[in-house]
Every structure is written in structure tokens, then in C-alpha cells.
């Protein structure tokens, strides 16, 4: 396979890893203010406490891999979305420190303040990730020199906001499914109720987004016509989504989580299939788009990176599995907890 295509796919894999793993802890953050008292909020925080940091590394690695494999796309996208990225950075900073700081003091105003910061930051991060996907689907004004030729408000389009909202509901759903595994008793019953609400909102937005995408972004279907087997991704996506309520009825919380994870992976694969071969589509002139071919690093760098990934990722996956195994089961608050 062409190394550039390989790296396009691997970036998708890294993004999926990020969205699945950080997706549930962002989702827990979005739902955080729904917890009724301090103990419940601490259960929420501690359900993700040992894991969120490792989850975020998937984003760092995705960023590094994009920089290395497609430097032009990295440079154009990050400088184009300057203020949006700054906002995202502030959200990620607040998420990290609010978890660390919140439970260090007993004062009600202190905990309340960090709770709000944590939840708002999670919401903003999820919204911005979704908007970035929406803007990428539509394309942004890129000039002949591969530089962004728009302003901040060119990014605040209704379609981008719609995909942003879709992502918030998806992560909230994913987070609720995760919390279902980590809580028990009355809190778990409430979490299940939220899960159904999130599922309803997500399905509505999902159908709406699908219709708008087909109408507004005809380019998205090009690859599906050339490569009909891509329709299988749609099948996987629909089956995974349908399996969420099924496994909940069958009382298999782990399977429900696996299903929402598969649905997220399938959505990102569909996003990649719609985008390819573009990394950033120019809305001014298709010839000015940044593509897998014109934005990539040299073949030698791509090969070196493939070797680095092949050496490193088996370790990463195996010890990620070990750590999730160590912290399996319901949350119990103890002396070491947040």
C-alpha cells in the first residue's frame, strides 16, 4: 500500500482511539453537573480519574503524527483554526487541573467552581471537536498558497454547529454508557435514564445530520460510488448503534460500551471515507485543497514513522489493556481518591 494512504488510515485509527477513550471521559464531564451531591460527583471523577490522562495522550500522538506525516495539513489547519484551537487548549487545561484541584479543599464554593469549570470545559472540547469535523466536511477557504484565507467567523457555520452538537450528544451517550458500568444503586438507575435521553437526542441529530450532509456535501459520496464496499461502514455503524439498546435490555453493560465504541470508530471511518483524498478541502477551488498527495512528508519519513509505530504501538496497546484491567469494576471512594 502507498505509505501516504497508510498514514491517512493510521491517523484515522489514532483519532478513533482518542474519540473512543477520551470520548467517554469527556462524556462523563458533560454529565458531571447532573450528579446530585458531592459524593456522586466524586464517583464520576474517580471513574475516569486514573484513565483520562492516558486517553488524552491519543490526541497528543494524533497531533504529532499529523505534524510528521502531513506537515502542510498540520500547519494550515492549526493556523486556520487559531482562536478555535486556543479555546480548545484552554478547555483541555481547565479539564486537567479542575480534576486535580477540585477535591483538595472542602469549601463548597471551591468545589462548585471547579465542577462547573470541568463540565463546561468538557462540553466546549466536545463541541469544538465536532465543529472541526463539520468544517472539514464542508471545506474551508484555502488559497492557492495553501494558507487559510478566511476569519474566525467563517468557521461558525450552521452545519459545523450541527456536527458539534451531534458530537456532544454522542460523547454524553458514550459517557453515560461508561458510567453505567462504574456505578450502582440509585445513581446507576439515574445514569441509565440519562443514557436513554442522550440516545434519543443523538439519534435525532444523527438522522438530521445525515440528511443535511447528503444535501449539502455531495462530494462526500464520491468515494462510495467508486468503492461500493465502503457502504459496509454504514452497515457497521447502524448495527453498532442498534446493538446499544439491545445489550442494555439484555443487561450486558460491557457489550453496550463496546457497541458505542464501534459506532464511534465507524463514524470516524465514514468521515475519512468522505474526506479522502483531501485532508483539508478548499472551498475556493478544489485544486487548492491539501491532499494526501501534496501535503505529505517524504517517503523516507513516512517509512521511519511506520517503523516507530510498529515498534511502539504493541507496547502501548498492551499496557493500556493492563491499566484498564487494574482499574476495572465499580468505583469505590477511598483515601487515595480525588
Amino acid at each position: 500500500m502507498d505509505l501516504r494512504v497508510l498514514w491517512f488510515v493510521l491517523l484515522g485509527v489514532l483519532l478513533s482511539g482518542y474519540a473512543i477513550l477520551d470520548g467517554f471521559d469527556l462524556g462523563v464531564g458533560i454529565l458531571h453537573l447532573g450528579a446530585r451531591n458531592d459524593e456522586e460527583r466524586r464517583i464520576f471523577l474517580n471513574s475516569i480519574g486514573p484513565l483520562w490522562d492516558g486517553n488524552e495522550v491519543w490526541l497528543v500522538t494524533f497531533g504529532g503524527a499529523l505534524f510528521a506525516a502531513f506537515p502542510d495539513a498540520y500547519a494550515t489547519a492549526f493556523s486556520a483554526f487559531y482562536l478555535a484551537f486556543m479555546l480548545l487548549l484552554f478547555a483541555l487545561i481547565f479539564r486537567a487541573v479542575s480534576m486535580e484541584f477540585r477535591s483538595k479543599r472542602e469549601w463548597a464554593w471551591w468545589r462548585r467552581g471547579w465542577d462547573v469549570a470541568f463540565s463546561a470545559a468538557s462540553f466546549v472540547a466536545a463541541l469544538l471537536f465536532g465543529m472541526a469535523v463539520g468544517d472539514s466536511m464542508l471545506g474551508i477557504p484555502i488559497g492557492a498558497n495553501h494558507e487559510y484565507a478566511g476569519g474566525f467567523f467563517n468557521l461558525l457555520r450552521p452545519y459545523a454547529l450541527l456536527v458539534g452538537a451531534l458530537n456532544v450528544s454522542l460523547f454524553a451517550l458514550h459517557g453515560a454508557i461508561y458510567l453505567n458500568m462504574k456505578t450502582h444503586g440509585e445513581l446507576q438507575r439515574r445514569v441509565r435514564r440519562w443514557m436513554w435521553h442522550a440516545f434519543g437526542i443523538f439519534l435525532t441529530l444523527y438522522m438530521f445530520t445525515t440528511i443535511v450532509t447528503l444535501a449539502e456535501v455531495p462530494r462526500a459520496l464520491g468515494n462510495f460510488q467508486r468503492m461500493p464496499w465502503l457502504w459496509a461502514l454504514v452497515g457497521v455503524n447502524v448495527l453498532a448503534l442498534a446493538n446499544i439498546p439491545r445489550s442494555l435490555f439484555l443487561r450486558r453493560p460491557g457489550q453496550a460500551f463496546a457497541s458505542s465504541a464501534a459506532a464511534i470508530a465507524a463514524l470516524i471511518a465514514l468521515f475519512g471515507a468522505a474526506l479522502y483524498p483531501n485532508l483539508i478541502a478548499s472551498s475556493l477551488n478544489p485544486a487548492w485543497s491539501l491532499t494526501v498527495a501534496n501535503a505529505s512528508s517524504s517517503a523516507k519519513t513516512l517509512r521511519i514513522m511506520a517503523i516507530i509505530a510498529a515498534c511502539g504501538m504493541p507496547f502501548v496497546l498492551s499496557y493500556t489493556a493492563v491499566i484498564y484491567w487494574i482499574f476495572r469494576g465499580k468505583v469505590e471512594l477511598g483515601k487515595l481518591s480525588y
Binding site: 495522550v57 497531533g63 504529532g64 505534524f67 510528521a68 506525516a69 514513522m305 509505530a309 511502539g312
Partner: peptide, 9 residues
Amino acid sequence: GSALAAEGI
């Protein structure tokens, strides 16, 4: 970029 990606991995 390769160094940054290696740092992550």
C-alpha cells in the same frame, strides 16, 4: 514531527 510522534508513542 517524527520526534514529536515518537515522544507520544
